[in-house]
Amino acid sequence: MKTLKELEEIRQRTLEAINLRKDRNGIRVVVGMATCGIAAGARNVLTGLIDQIRDRRIQHITVAQTGCIGVCRYEPMVEVYYPGEEKVTYVNMTPEKVERVVTEHLVNGSPVTEYTIGAAEKIH
């Protein structure tokens, strides 16, 4: 038998999982999944990202894919959109780098500057 408190826990937990059907205003993470992205390992980046979100039970987040973002040499690329803010583009992503982005950017809100496209272009 459930108590009111347990019902509330079920509510929270399930809402996290199904809110993407109603909520269009959360954080959006977009992974480039064109042929170039997939060839460069975008699938591992995507599955790594999903695993991280699951493990940390992050709320109000959607993960989408997109086609070619246009700079194939930087694939796999991941874009993070916070509502009302400039998007942040991460390049040459790996599952390991995703882990840091999830912790620092998606959980704590501060972008990992060294992985961004801005940083990469400075080096070249």
Binding site: L7, I10, R11, R13, T14, L15, I18, R21, K22
Partner: peptide, 18 residues
């Protein structure tokens, strides 16, 4: 058209039984 009718948790998620 929003929830899975066979899953009570999904009903609860959108304030069901509240």
């Amino acid at each position: 058209g929003v929830i899975n009718p066979e899953d009570i948790d999904e009903y609860i998620a959108f304030n069901g039984y509240k």
